[in-house]
């Protein structure tokens, strides 16, 4: 049995923990992130069905297949979506697909350019060269959200009269012989919100029935499960974990795989804090009752 002085100290400690200053939580998260960024834990990554479907959908493309990639995220979501973007683009260009990128987000066009720059640089080292306007194109930003998606479905050339460099879209070799979603072999959207994957399903995929896959942030992923179950979306990557699974599937561990160490450690920290907070609250209640 605890003495009254001891009990009050014990009680004070529990009360202090339940009402812990958030700066301590910030500090713990920061420290854990820094430490685990520099530790290689090599945790086993098991690809989910959704990620595996994304991989197989891209892998089944034939050389010369037309792929529309809508890049709908800005630098804010780079941590989660950049690894997905680069991994998918790399696989597409290696497969010889014709990749046409566009965006419905104002701050996304530089991400498109950065993606091409990064992947083309890597492919060049492997001896694979790709030509702008022939193997890939950046059609830039289009305002209009859902209306723009509906318009893209009807005509790429009408919606994007020029590419991001100011060249007439109709004169680009990559755009010859096709103009709408009926001719597209695969639609990919890498998105952070609205307009994004859900809007592409509603405005384009449900109408034109072309195969579609998506890469989204972890908070958007739960919204895509109904579309995955109804086969509107063949597969999707959810957040950094989805990107890590994809890196495992393509056999090229990168930033996402490394990020899993940090994410695992921070998730464990949060769960421990939550559990300890609940235990402390329970003990406080018991003391109050007694």
């Amino acid at each position: 049995m605890m003495g009254s002085g001891q009990q009050s100290r014990y009680q004070r400690f529990l009360e202090a923990f339940v009402a812990l200053d958030r700066r301590w939580i910030f500090l713990s998260v920061g420290l854990i992130a820094i430490i685990f960024m520099n530790i290689d834990m090599s945790l086993p990554i098991t690809p989910s069905d959704q990620s595996t479907e994304v991989y197989h959908t891209i892998e089944s493309l034939k050389p010369g297949a037309i792929v529309h990639m809508s890049i709908d995220y800005g630098p804010g979501s780079e941590a989660e979506l950049w690894p997905q973007h680069v991994a998918m683009l790399r696989q597409l260009l290696r497969k010889g697909a014709k990749v046409v990128c566009s965006s419905l987000w104002t701050d996304a066009p530089p991400m498109i350019e950065k993606g091409f720059e990064t992947v083309l640089g890597e492919l060049q080292k492997e001896g694979i060269t790709k030509q702008r306007g022939v193997d890939y194109a950046n059609l830039g930003f289009k305002a209009g959200d859902r209306v723009a998606i509906a318009s893209i479905g009807t005509s790429f050339r009408q919606t994007f009269p020029t590419d991001s460099m100011g060249n007439p879209t109709s004169q680009l070799p990559i755009m010859r012989g096709w103009d709408n979603y009926r001719d597209v072999d695969l639609l990919i959207t890498i998105s952070v919100g609205d307009p994004g994957a859900v809007e592409y399903v509603q405005q384009a995929q449900s109408r034109y029935r072309m195969p579609m896959i998506a890469g989204v942030t972890a908070v958007i992923a739960p919204q895509l499960y109904p579309y995955y179950q109804s086969k509107n979306i063949r597969g999707f990557l959810g957040g950094l974990a989805g990107a890590a699974e994809y890196e495992k599937l393509v056999g090229e561990p990168g930033r996402a795989t490394k990020g899993m160490n940090v994410q695992s450690a921070v998730h464990v920290l949060i769960v421990l804090m939550v559990l300890l907070g609940n235990i402390a609250q329970y003990l406080l209640k018991r003391i109050a009752r007694s």
Binding site: L20, R22, I25, F26, S28, V29, G30, A33, G74, P75, G76, S77, E78, A79, D107, P110, V266, L269, I270, M273, V274, G277, N278, Q281, Y282
Partner: peptide
């Protein structure tokens, strides 16, 4: 690339800290 990019990434990254703090306070049985 040198101003907007790091600023936007920083703001979004701060969410992780706030989510951790909010989870600690909100997830109570």
């Amino acid at each position: 690339y040198n101003i907007y990019y790091p600023l936007a990434a920083t703001i979004y990254s701060l969410l992780a800290f706030y989510v951790a703090s909010a989870a600690f306070r909100a997830f109570r049985a």
